[in-house]
Amino acid sequence: MSHLQQHTEPPSGRRGFLAKLLAICCGGLATLPPLAAGVWMFLDPLRRRGAAATFLPVTELASVPDDGIPRQFAVVSDRVDAWTGFAAEPIGAVYLRRQQGSETVEALSATCPHAGCFVEIESQEKCFRCPCHNSTFMLDGGIVAPSPSPRAMDGLECRVAKNGQITVKWQNFYTGIAEKVARP
């Protein structure tokens, strides 16, 4: 019995310290690779970038009545979702508006700058309203105070080609902040 009891206390002194240090290091080292590899892979989305902002065809000038009332149009584009490639899919929506007799078109993103819901147009009340937290915007996208939204609706660059083709520079912006900052 006394022989066994000698080993119930952990060894002290230099040899004991080394053994403890080595045990911790070996164990830690053995656990590190799966943990580090796991974290490395888990953070993969940080390396991913959205498609570069490009001008996408949306519709024809003739489809946007020149009455100053915005109309909703789907934005169609090829899209990649991880391993799946979608050809010509609706990826979002914009509002287009044309003033009477004008050939230029204003474009607004349909994404609410507050929390990212889909802003709807209230034709009866002649304004935009977000169905989530009631942010209200004027027909030009300007904010109707007081609003939960920190900024006006996000305008998008819009071009009208000679043949009437309307293209819009499709971009997503960070929500919930006062400045309009495009997502990478």
Binding site: C117, P131, P150
Partner: peptide
């Protein structure tokens, strides 16, 4: 993502947080 969903609401037990965001009308960001 291209179809609006005007009936968007969280589950009832998160509704208070949802409503809480409306309290800060006019506070900006």
């Amino acid at each position: 993502p291209s179809q609006p969903y005007a009936a968007a609401r969280p589950e009832w037990y998160f509704l208070f947080l949802f409503q809480f965001l409306k309290v800060f009308e006019g506070w900006g960001a």
